[in-house]
Simulated assay, not measured.
Amino acid sequence: MEQLLLELLEWFKDLSYLGVFIALCIEFIPAELVLPLAGFWVSEGEMRFWGVVIAGSLGGVVGPLTLYSIGRFGGRPLLETYGKYVFMNKDNLQKADQFFQSHGAFVAFSARFLPGVRTLISVPCGMAKMNPWIFSLYTFLAMAPISFFYVYFGVELGENWTEVKGLLQQYLVPFGIGLVIVFLIYLLVTHRKRSV
């Protein structure tokens, strides 16, 4: 399996920016793996930094749009029947559904920063028939900084890109805490408006 993944990543590299875009379109290939590796390719002079960030950000919108479409046009019966083949069991769908119901459209942005929820949240957004342009905008606004930071760390690590996890914890934890604080403030303001 590991060899297959390495060959797939090499194929993405051969496709350059298009490869980064395609890799990010496939929701179940982790951006945490692809983007730091693409940052390494940037450090080797094989791609340009902003080209990779743009390709990653756009791919990170198209991938969720496919799941959004499945939710919108296939609905829950389709997902409950066939979702298990793409790692979507009923419990995961229920959690994503509840998260969307609790937090509304802003969830298309905020959930991108939450591992485990970020992939599946597109489905309840589609099932709720959220405006696809708003969904895409929120998704892009989340994916742009994510792409920037992962590619940046890949560039900084150079040949040591496989050590990205430790460096990400060092720098992205404060960033993540900041995002959580912003999200909590948003929830507090929304809750108060509903109470009034």
Rank of each mutant, 00 (worst) to 15 (best):
F28C: 03
I22H: 07
F113P: 07
R194V: 04
W133T: 07
A105D: 07
L184S: 11
G56Y: 00
T66K: 03
V53F: 01
S102D: 12
E80F: 02
M143Y: 05
A38W: 04
L58S: 03
L78S: 08
Y68A: 10
S57H: 03
F21S: 09
I54W: 05
G158F: 09
F149G: 10
L114S: 09
V107A: 13
V189N: 08
Y17P: 04
G126R: 00
H191E: 15
S195M: 15
W161R: 06
I185W: 05
F73K: 11
G116L: 08
G63P: 11
Q169E: 12
L8F: 06
L114K: 02
F153N: 05
A142Y: 10
L9G: 02
L67W: 05
S136P: 03
P145G: 03
S147L: 00
P174T: 10
L188I: 11
F28N: 05
H103E: 09
D91K: 15
F175K: 09
F153K: 01
L141N: 00
L184Q: 11
Q3A: 13
Q101I: 14
F99V: 06
P77Y: 03
G154I: 01
F149A: 11
A108M: 05
M127Q: 10
T139D: 03
M143Q: 13
F99Y: 08
W133A: 01
L188W: 14
E2V: 14
S102E: 11
L157Y: 07
F175E: 12
A38G: 09
L6V: 09
V164L: 14
L6H: 09
F153H: 02
V117N: 05
G154V: 04
Q101K: 15
V86T: 06
C125D: 03
G45T: 00
N160C: 04
A111S: 06
F135Q: 06
D91G: 15
Y17V: 10
Y68K: 08
V107E: 01
R118K: 12
K95L: 00
G59N: 02
G75C: 01
I121K: 07
F153V: 05
S102G: 11
L33S: 13
L120D: 00
V151M: 04
V62K: 05
E2P: 03
G39L: 14
N131I: 02
F28A: 02
Y82P: 00
S110R: 08
Y85F: 13
Y150L: 14
V53E: 04
G176M: 04
G75T: 06
C25K: 01
F100W: 14
E27V: 09
G154W: 06
Y138C: 08
I29S: 11
W11K: 15
P30R: 10
E163P: 05
Y186D: 13
T119E: 08
T139F: 09
L67F: 13
V164E: 10
L8W: 01
S147M: 02
H191V: 02
G83E: 09
S147F: 00
F106A: 15
A38L: 03
